[in-house]
Amino acid sequence: MDYTLLFIQTLNGVQLGLLLFLVASGLTLVFGILDFVNLAHGSIYMIGAFVCASLTYWSGNFLIAVVLSLPVMAVLGYLIERVIARRLYARDHLDHVLGTFGLILVMDTSAHLIWGPEGIAVPLPDWLNGQVTLFADVVVPSFRLLIIATGLTIAAGLFWLVNYTRLGMLIRAGASNRTMVAALGIDIKTLFSLVFALGAVLAGLAGMLVAPITEASISMGGEIIITAFVVIIVGGIGSMKGAFIAALMIGLIDTLGRSFLGDIFQLFMSQDAAETSAPAISAMLIYIIMAAVLAVRPQGLFPPKVR
C-alpha cells in the first residue's frame, strides 16, 4: 500500500468535499428554511466564477477580485429573491422547478452573450501558483491548501452563525414556524431575502475558488447542481451538519473511488474487465451511495428534527 498516495488522495478528497459543501450549504439553507427548490443555484455558482474572472483581469489580483465579487453575488441573490423566488414560496415544488429552470436558461444564455462561449482562465498570484511540501514526498499545490482552509473557515462560520447568533436563531425559528416568527414582530421577508443572498454568496464563492483550477465556463453550473443536490439529500435537507458530513463523504468516496477502484477490482477480475468496469462504477458511485442511503434512511442521514 502506497501511504503517501493514500494521504494525498485523502487530501484531494477533502478539498473536493469542501468545495461541494460551499455549494451545498447555500442550497440546503434556501431549501431547508425557505422550502424553495432552487435549480438555478448552479448558475449562481457559474456567475460567481465569471464575475471573479473579469474582476481578476480588471484589478490584476485574484484575491482582490474575490473580495469585490462577494457583494456582487449578494446583490444578485437579493434581486433573484425579490423578483422571482419570493412570489413562488407559497407554491408547489413543481412550480419552483419550472421557474428556476427558466432562470437557468436565462442566466446561462446571458453569460454566453456577455462573456462568450470560450470561458475564461483565471491567473493566480505566484505564491498561490506553486506547491507546498508538507513532509517527505507529500507535495501539494498551494492553492488546494487555500481551498481547504477557506472551506473549513466558512464551515465553522456557518456553524457559529446558525447555532449561536440571533440571526441564526431567527433562521431556525423561521424554518419551523413562519407565522410565529412574524407574529413576534420579526420582518420575515427581510430575513428570507438575507438567507437567499447568503446562499448566493456561498455558491458564488465556490465558483470563484474553482475557476483558477478549471476555468469560468458557461456549462459549469449544470455540472455541479446535481452533485450539490445529492449532497443535501444524503445529508438531510436543511441540515447544515448533514451537508458538511455528506459533502466530505462524497468528496472522499468519489476521489478515492477514482483512484483505487481499478486496483481493487483487479483483485478479483481480469485486468481488462477491471479497466472497463472501474471507470463506469466510479462514475455511478455517488448515485449508488445516494440510492443506498435513501433506501435505508428515506429522509437522509441527518433529517431536521421538526418540520
Binding site: D2, T4, L5, I8, Q9, N12, G13, Q15, L16, P141, R144, I213, T214, M220, E223, T255, L256, R258, S259, G262, E275, A278, P279, S282, A283
Partner: peptide, 22 residues
Amino acid sequence: GKDMTKWPTQLDFSSELAKAKA
C-alpha cells in the same frame, strides 16, 4: 497506469495527477 475520467463533467484531475506521479 491508465485512468479513464468521467466525461464531460469531471474537470478536477488532482487524484489522477497524483497517481500518475506516484
